[in-house]
Simulated assay, not measured.
Amino acid sequence: MIFQLMGLMALLLFYGVYFGKMAAQRKQGIQTDHIAKGGKKGRLFWVEMTMKAATYAVPAVEIISLLSGTSRMPALIRYLGALAAFAGAACFAASVYTMRDSWRAGIPEGDKTEIVTTGIYSMSRNPAFLGFDLVYIGLLLMFFNPVLLVFSIFAMLMLHMQILQEEKYMADTFGGEYEKYREHVYRYIGSKGRYGGNTNET
């Protein structure tokens, strides 16, 4: 029961931030969800559409796994999973807070935002995606089963494909400023010293 409660709490925290931020931006007239929208075609459209389907399917499988409550994983591994899940929710919340009104889901073609390199973005170029991955890994360790394993791996793979698309967009949009930032901060976690670029937090 304790693992079910912790798993449910981690999911509520994570998706509460996700959908809560979307609702808050909608009230401001900001369209947050740009996934597979805006006339996107070709590879970008299919990557975003597949990613969206995967990231909507995983929570359903997670909830089913959580409600079943069964797992043969040792208690220590399950507690580490809970720690990873809560760390993922915190990481995602920090990324959304740091981005403020520049946060978008998907590539916002035609919706100009500013590059953010401060706060948690000085330690990871993609902390929101890192948050997703940590939650997936955490719930997988807590409620391991083959179906959840397959769905989680596929979703993380699609999130990585989305990162590659977004990095190309960032390089095209922000040019040398983004390239300099990319040289200092790693894709998922870590940096090569303090980045001294743009200090705007938007």
Rank of each mutant, 00 (worst) to 15 (best):
F14P: 07
G110D: 10
Y195Q: 03
Y169G: 05
S191I: 00
K52T: 10
D33I: 03
A89L: 13
K37T: 13
A94T: 04
G190H: 01
V185E: 00
A85C: 03
Y181V: 04
G175N: 10
L8D: 02
L134F: 09
I153R: 04
S71L: 08
F174R: 06
V116L: 04
T50E: 04
A10C: 10
G175I: 11
G119I: 00
C91H: 01
V147L: 15
E167P: 09
M142N: 11
L159Y: 04
M142H: 12
T113C: 04
L80S: 08
M156T: 09
A87G: 02
M158I: 02
R182F: 00
L67T: 05
A105G: 01
A89K: 10
R194K: 15
L134A: 06
Y181C: 06
D33N: 15
V61L: 12
V116F: 03
A10T: 03
Y169V: 09
Y195L: 00
S68L: 12
Y178W: 15
Y56F: 14
R72N: 10
E48D: 13
Y195K: 00
T173L: 05
V96T: 11
R182W: 05
L159M: 05
T113I: 12
Y169W: 15
I153F: 13
E201C: 09
Y121I: 07
A85T: 01
A24Y: 07
I163S: 00
E167H: 08
R104Y: 13
Q28Y: 09
E114S: 13
M49E: 13
F45S: 04
A93K: 03
